[in-house]
Amino acid sequence: MIDRPLQNRTAFITGASSGLGVRFAHLLAGAGAKVALAARRTDRLDAEVAYIRAAGGEAVAIALDVSDAEAIGPAIDRAEAELGPLSILVNNAGVGGDGAALSLPVDRYDQTFDVNVRGVYLAAREAAKRMIDSGVAEAGDARIVNIASIAGLNQLPGLTAYCASKAAVISLTQGLAREWAKRHIAVNAIAPGYIETEINSDWFATDGGRAQIAGFPRRRLMDNDALDQALLLLTGRAARFMTGSVIVVDDGQSL
């Protein structure tokens, strides 16, 4: 018998058109969840939805730019209308924000915080409202997982804005966990190390990127399945007793 620990749960995943977002959508669908894939690039979403449906899962594609505050609530409403009451939010959407502080344009700094911090905060708030109103929270099934980074725990050169944004995600996770503890909403975060994605692939192809990898204790990037078990833990039954946690999965890269 196939184990489907998230059977009939509805999950909403931001930044689901590529990289980790796609991986998360496939993983949660495979665990039985009905998944809403949200991102700006809907052409990519349609292909992933078709893949999940062909495998027997339930999925919908939803156009969403998390920097648009007015769009987040309606996007979640659409997901609930098509898939049922929301019980899992994965705040995965993010941008790089690389650049030295003296030269980083202000609009790039603003975009980093609009997506990486403001978008996380607003999506969590809109999700929490619906989880409370539907009774999902009271039933103990409400899960919010924010994707932070080891950059939120360690200062990395040339990434001051990005590191600050991910540190803010960790702070938001702990603050919302405390605020919503009595509402029975589990709010946790995963802080990944380096996995090759569209955001960083160009860098790791350079001499500097290869030198960075050589400096890691295990001299490698992580595989794209590195976060699977952490995500299943934080979206599943065990997270009834976890809130405000930050799980670091980095292959020792920050040692």
Rank of each mutant, 00 (worst) to 15 (best):
A226P: 09
P74F: 07
V187D: 00
L231S: 10
S134N: 10
A31T: 11
G19W: 04
A239W: 11
L159K: 12
R143T: 14
A101T: 15
L86D: 07
A31S: 14
D251K: 06
V90F: 11
E48D: 09
V106P: 00
D107Q: 14
V115L: 01
A75H: 07
R53A: 09
E196M: 11
C163N: 10
L86K: 09
I72W: 10
L86H: 11
R220S: 14
A168W: 03
G208I: 01
I62F: 05
C163P: 02
Y194A: 02
A31W: 04
A79Y: 01
N154C: 01
E48L: 07
G193L: 06
R220E: 12
N91V: 10
M131Q: 06
E138K: 15
G140D: 13
I190P: 03
E82W: 04
R178T: 13
N8D: 15
A59F: 02
D223N: 12
L45R: 03
A100S: 13
Y51D: 13
V106W: 07
A177C: 09
R23Q: 15
A177W: 06
V120F: 08
I144Y: 14
A123L: 05
A36P: 06
G119C: 07
N116V: 02
I247D: 06
R4T: 15
L83D: 01
L27W: 12
A39R: 04
L6T: 08
I195Y: 08
V49F: 05
T206F: 11
L176C: 09
A55P: 01
Y162I: 03
D98R: 10
F24K: 02
L83R: 04
A63D: 04
R53Y: 00
D46T: 10
G73Q: 06
A47H: 06
A128Q: 01
T160H: 01
M222T: 09
R78C: 04
T243Q: 11
A123E: 02
A151P: 02
F204G: 08
D133R: 14
A127E: 02
A137M: 07
A238F: 10
N224E: 14
S165Q: 05
I150G: 00
D3S: 14
F12E: 04
T42A: 01
L122D: 07
I62T: 02
A81P: 10
I195E: 02
R9H: 15
D225N: 15
L233T: 15
F216V: 05
V248P: 07
D46G: 05
V169W: 01
P85I: 12
A164W: 00
G209F: 04
Q229M: 12
A239C: 13
L221I: 08
T197S: 12
G252P: 09
S201P: 03
A81S: 15
A36S: 10
G21Y: 09
A25S: 15
P192E: 05
M222H: 02
V169R: 03
